[in-house]
């Protein structure tokens, strides 16, 4: 396992970087540190942002400083008490019919599979929420089976509704807002994953596990 690096971000944040490539093992360490910091926040901490292999800690520079925040985080890591917990699982129903999956035929041609095989592959994947980004509620899910790995489209396209199930490379995402995307739209879910009116508008936490189920 690679060594942890501490990288200051200006005067008001620090990146705890676990290094290496995207992996579930590394992301588990990110999520565990994130949870440990939530339980024992250092003085002056404002918020944390988990990503694939790193965690950003944002703090108030009038109250504390990078060295103190980093020391606190590293001490939590050292204490080795930051056990990974069993992930929360979500089951998301997906429709793969032509109207819901405008790119399914193209993905089938590009991968040499039939549309039904693409669907079967997609359903067979084990998906993990690695991080959020791009837009509110956009959760990056890793775990697309290798048979479906495709580069993204040459340019982003508009007009896909919220709830679109999209893939690119090893990643899958359920759109939360109608935003342009260069990923392949292979399904749609009626499950609302970003409901601004809910007290907790977001369905997933980083580290959660997702299983897709075919809805007909």
């Amino acid at each position: 396992m690679s060594a942890v690096s501490v990288r200051p971000i200006g005067e008001s944040a620090v990146l705890i970087d676990f290094g290496g490539e995207i992996s579930t093992a590394t992301n588990e360490r990110v999520v565990a540190l994130d949870r440990a910091l939530a339980g024992q926040p250092p003085q002056g901490m404002i918020e944390t942002v988990p990503a694939y292999v790193s965690l950003m800690i944002v703090f108030d520079p009038l109250q504390t400083e990078c060295d103190r925040i980093a020391a606190h985080a590293l001490a939590l890591l050292e204490s080795a008490k930051i056990a990974t917990r069993p992930p929360r699982e979500h089951v998301i129903p997906v429709r793969y019919d032509a109207a819901s999956a405008p790119d399914l035929e193209t993905v089938a041609k590009a991968t040499g599979l039939t549309p039904d095989e693409v669907v079967a592959q997609h359903l067979a994947g084990e998906y993990r929420v690695f991080m959020y980004g791009f837009a509110p509620g956009y959760a990056y899910l890793g775990g697309v089976p290798p048979a479906l790995h495709l580069p993204r489209k040459p340019r982003a396209q508009r007009g896909h509704p919220a709830g679109s199930v999209i893939i690119a490379g090893a990643q899958c995402l359920i759109t939360s807002l109608p935003m342009p995307t260069g990923w392949w739209v292979i399904g749609h879910t009626a499950q609302v994953i970003l409901d601004p009116a809910r007290a907790q508008p977001f369905l997933f936490d980083p580290g959660d596990v997702i299983r897709f189920e075919r809805e007909r």
Partner: peptide, 30 residues
């Protein structure tokens, strides 16, 4: 690189080396 968290004030370079300064509504990871 794997996407990493981003902060307001970061000087981000695209693949061609063009620089953008992230402001209030920045993407949270990039």
């Amino acid at each position: 690189m794997p996407s990493e968290p981003a902060l307001r004030g970061c000087l981000q370079a695209d693949g061609d080396g063009g620089l953008t300064v992230l402001l209030a509504d920045h993407q949270t990871t990039s």
